[in-house]
Structure formats: C-alpha cells, structure tokens
Amino acid sequence: MADPSAESAETGNSEAIAEAFADGPAYIPYLAVGDPDYDSSKAYVEALDRGGADVIELGLPFSEPIAEGSTIQGALVRALDAGMTPDRFFAFAEEVDVEAPLVCMTYYNLIYQYGSESGPRPFVERAAAAGIEGLVVPDLPAEEADPLREACDEFGLDLVFIVAPTTVGDRLDRIMSRVSGYVYVQARLGTTGARSDVSDQTTQSLDRLREYDVPKAVGFGISAGEHAERIVAGGADGIIVGSALVDIVAEGVENDLSTAEVADRLEALSRELKAGAERGYDARAETAESR
C-alpha cells in the first residue's frame, strides 16, 4: 500500500482543496443549501465546519435530481420550496462563516442556464467570485464536460467527477484525465442514501484507482464513525457524507427542533465521522510503516 501522506495534490486548481487532503484524511460533509430555510441552513453548514470539515459540499437544488435517493431529494425539495435559487446560493456561499473550502454540487442545466451568455462560463465565473473552489455535477459525463472543464481552469476551480463501481477501462481513463481536486468514488450502485454496510465494491474501486495520482474520496452510504474508519483504512483519502447529515436536518423539521439543537447534532456526528476517518488513517500509516 502506498504511503498515504505521499499523495500528490499537484493536479488540482484549488490550493485550499489540495491542502484539505495534504496531511490526513479529508472529511467532506454535504448539505443542501436552503434546507429547510436560508438562515438555519447557514447555521448547519457552520456546524459542519466546527465539527472538523476539511471540504464542504453545498448542494444547489435542481428540480429533477435524478442521481439522488429520497433523503437528499427531500432536502432539495424543501430548499426549493423555501425559495433557493442560484443567486441566493452564491450569496449564501459569500456569507457563510467557514474555514473549509466550498464545493458546489448541482445539475448541469442550472450551470448551463446561468447568466445571459449560454454555456457554463458565467456560472463558473460567479461561483469563483463567491469563493467556491470546486464543482461536482452528477449528470455531466466526461464526454460532455469539456466546456465546463475549460471554464473551471479559467477561473481556478476544481472539477470533481464521480466514478461508479461499474466504471472501468476507457471510461475510467476518460474521467481521470479530466478530474481535478479529488475523485468522488461511489461506494456502491444506486442513488445516494445512508446504509449501514460498506460494500466490497468500494475496495475494488479503490484498487482500480490506485494508479491515478488524485485524492480519492469515497461517498454513498457512510453514516457512522466506524464506516469512516474502515473506508479510510481501506485506502480512501477522504470520506463524503450526505444523507446521514441530511437525515438530521429532516428529523429537525419533522420534530420541530430548534436550529441550535439540529446544529449541535450535526456537529457531533461530524466529530464522530472525522475521528473515525483519522483512526482509519493511523491504522493505514502503521500498516505502511510495518512493511
């Protein structure tokens, strides 16, 4: 196994994202911006930061999120119903008080439509101005991504791609030649959603990706510290957690909890996940040393 600290981050545009992976595993939480409303959402994202986030993925809600399971779909609907728009999203990114670099996760139509000129450039320019360091676009395959890749390079953003357990051969090469910042390793088939098990597919995906010199962050289904530990011990450079955090926000809505209460829970789960990831990293470093 390679020494985890030897990961190169030279492939990226964003220094902040490269630093997030530089000395230790990256904990990357996701929340839908504006869920359930603008102000609460800001408090929640700041709680993730206090809980140890190294990068924060902010979901910009789209009306047809075909890659999401019911948990995140529900969050996106709540955020849209509360009036979230791309412009309010950028205002949020500017106002939110966090240290971790921000990555925007959204669907291609919103990127394509933004601004007066057609194509992805105006969105990326605005995102850069708002302090966004990277983008993840689940419905944009590598084959269609060149205009967005160019705009990201122009404005210094990273473009993160998702690889699935079924991504192999030429497709994997095509994706890995366009990715920067980190690669989002989808732990199993299907849509997003918290699960209790860690799939064998994750290990196989990490094995396939070993030769590529870009940080590997595993997402889909991570909900507890011990999952985080196992995944990082198994070779991941970072963990992405969405549905387990969104579930806390949803419970807050259902049970009418105060914003502070929900924020505390988000911070606590974040600490647990981050600690788990660090335990996994230490275990991995020990294994490497003993060789």
Binding site: A67, V163, A164
Partner: peptide, 14 residues
Amino acid sequence: GGQYVPEALMPAIE
C-alpha cells in the same frame, strides 16, 4: 441529444 446521466448508468447505456 447526448448522454447526460449519472456515471452509474453509463455502462448500462453502453
């Protein structure tokens, strides 16, 4: 046209 789908669907589409 094109193929704007999540990566997990690409092998099925191919």
